[in-house]
Computed example of a mutant assay.
Amino acid sequence: MEFSPPLQSSRLIARYKRFLADVVTPQGDTLTLHCANTGAMTGCATPGDTVWYSTSASTTRKYPHSWEITETKQGHFICVNTLRANQLVREALLAQCLPELSGYSGLRSEVKYGDERSRIDFLLQAEARPECYIEVKSVTLLQEGRGWFPDAVTERGQKHLRELSKIAEGGNRAVLLFAVLHSGIEDVSPARHIDARYAELLVQAQQSGVELLAYQAQLSSTGMRLNKSVRVELS
């Protein structure tokens, strides 16, 4: 994925009302950015950090600028635009860049499935192969040298684990794919200290046959792509 034009830099003043953030440009102008992230953004929104933002050509948007990447004082790059995770995974699947998920000829998005009326992020299909259901989760929380998911209690995430477990038990492939959008994260673990029930369900899902994968994105002001497999540690 390339940013065209490249992202522009600014300094974070504050994030507020969840969807908005004020920044100051190198020229001294103050801008209000749209923030497409409803999560806690722990460690991703510290005042004074560098914010890289894109600008929409749309004339109807109230806030034409979008917060894409945080560059922390420690030098880490973090993609905070949660919409990018699925875009990156889709791009990687189409390019056959994820070895564990290659060899499929059909790719569908947002397919309804399950007893709890869910929508799977991606459904891979091929002749003479079980269907492959892929749920994508964005990982940006770094604490004590490790990446954690989730960064807040997620009943929706718990539901997805129950649905994926049933898919695996029914004979199809079920994959939970962590898109690691933080340059400092080298492995991913369930955040028991944040959502103990999610952590329990994740272990149960793996025991039911759900495959756990994690890929880290290479991030810069000109583009990003998933290019590095990292470990998922349940212990």
Rank of each mutant, 00 (worst) to 15 (best):
L7E: 00
L7A: 00
L7T: 00
A14W: 02
R18N: 14
D22Q: 13
V24W: 03
V24F: 02
T25R: 02
D29F: 02
D29I: 03
L31D: 02
L31T: 05
L31S: 06
T32E: 07
C35A: 05
N37H: 07
T38G: 04
A40P: 07
G43Y: 02
P47D: 05
T50F: 00
V51F: 00
A57S: 10
Y63L: 11
W67Q: 14
T72I: 01
Q74K: 07
H76N: 15
N81L: 10
A85E: 01
N86C: 11
N86D: 12
V89Y: 05
V89D: 08
R90K: 15
R90Q: 15
L93H: 12
A95V: 06
A95F: 03
G106N: 14
S109A: 15
D115T: 15
R117M: 12
F122Q: 12
L123Y: 09
P130F: 03
E131I: 10
I134P: 07
V136K: 13
K137H: 09
S138V: 06
V139G: 07
L142D: 04
L142I: 14
R146V: 08
W148L: 12
P150D: 05
E155R: 14
R156I: 10
Q158A: 06
H160Q: 15
L161S: 13
E163D: 09
K166D: 10
K166A: 12
I167R: 09
N172D: 09
V175P: 03
V175F: 02
L176T: 03
S183H: 02
S183T: 04
V188M: 07
R192D: 13
H193W: 05
A196K: 09
R197K: 06
V203H: 11
V203E: 14
Q204R: 15
Q207Y: 01
L213A: 12
A214H: 03
Q216E: 14
A217Y: 01
L219C: 03
S221E: 06
G223L: 01
G223N: 08
K228H: 12
S229H: 13
V230G: 15
R231Y: 04
V232E: 11
V232F: 04
